[in-house]
């Protein structure tokens, strides 16, 4: 059975903005999916409709066998603990330390009182430390998180998502604010997480080359609709052109430039 199913999912912000229309996707456990498309295509909206950070207007979302759009608040909170989220701008609480930010990932499992008091078990703290070690942040643990570089912040974001013990990660342009070096490190970690832990990863990307390199499956979004859904090997130049529309030429120039640097 599929881990996540979207059926006729639509989102309309107002009369003029139809951000998503009739999206149908079925995602299996352990898949690494890249969602590509020009800015304004609806990628962020799609990701946020999955965990109801944005309420879809129409359609169905089934996650782990549960109809997500018709659950009560408490049940929604429980389901969200199983879905980690990673953001372009990291979304850490800047004034808190790295380890505090990581432990935030456990708050979803706690009652309001225990969560509010910030009581974490010994096991949770050990897990946080272990995750930070795994992500190469052992020395940064007690630093304030606004003292870190972008790439380090994003790794804290990954640790916060992983400590949730998730079945799926939703990543909204996780490397859009990072330099090529840091980008590669982050993408490598996401790939490793998907392969070694069997966690499903859905990642919005602006860069086609990165998407082609890392994903098992590409979903191309253009003007709120899915225009491509298949493997990265099958996708043609023409299809990429169709996804990106008039942005295509800029994209090619950028890609060539990168190749030029690499060579």
């Amino acid at each position: 059975m599929a881990l996540l199913e979207l059926f006729n999912l639509s989102k309309r912000y107002d009369q003029h903005t139809i951000a998503l229309s009739d999206i149908n996707i079925s995602v299996n456990k352990g898949e690494f999916i890249a969602v590509i498309g020009p800015s304004g295509a609806g990628k962020s909206t799609l990701l946020r409709c999955i965990n109801r950070m944005i309420e879809p207007t129409n359609g169905e979302v089934t996650f782990d066998g549960v109809d997500l759009l018709h659950v009560k608040r408490k049940e929604l909170r429980r389901l969200r603990t199983k879905i980690g989220m990673i953001f372009q701008h990291y979304h850490l609480v800047n004034r808190l330390t790295v380890i505090e930010n990581v432990l935030h990932g456990r708050l979803g499992y706690k009652s309001s009182v225990v969560g509010a008091l910030g009581i974490y078990t010994k096991k949770e703290k050990e897990q946080a430390i272990q995750l930070l070690r795994m992500l190469g942040l052992a020395d940064q643990m007690y630093k304030r998180s606004d003292k870190l570089s972008g790439g380090q912040k994003q790794r804290v974001g990954i640790a916060r998502a992983l400590i949730q013990d998730p079945k799926m990660l939703l990543c909204d342009e996780p490397i859009a604010s990072l330099d090529p070096n840091a980008s590669k490190i982050i993408m490598d970690y996401l790939q490793k997480i998907s392969q070694s832990l069997g966690i499903t990863v859905i990642v919005n990307l602006h860069q086609v080359d990165v998407a082609l390199q890392y994903s098992d499956r590409i979903i191309g979004v253009s003007q709120g609709q899915i225009v491509y859904d298949g493997t990265p090997t099958d996708i043609t130049q023409e299809q990429i052109h169709q996804i990106y529309g008039s942005d295509f030429d800029d994209l090619m120039v950028e890609m060539n430039k990168e190749k030029h640097y690499a060579g």
């Binding site: 989220m85 701008h89 935030h104 708050l107 969560g115």
Partner: peptide
């Protein structure tokens, strides 16, 4: 804004979000 969104996505309760973010 950003911290609130991140904590909401982890499933944290309203009071936890206010206190920790």
């Amino acid at each position: 804004n950003s911290g609130v969104e991140a904590l909401r996505a982890t499933g944290a309760s309203y009071i936890s979000i206010v206190i920790h973010s």
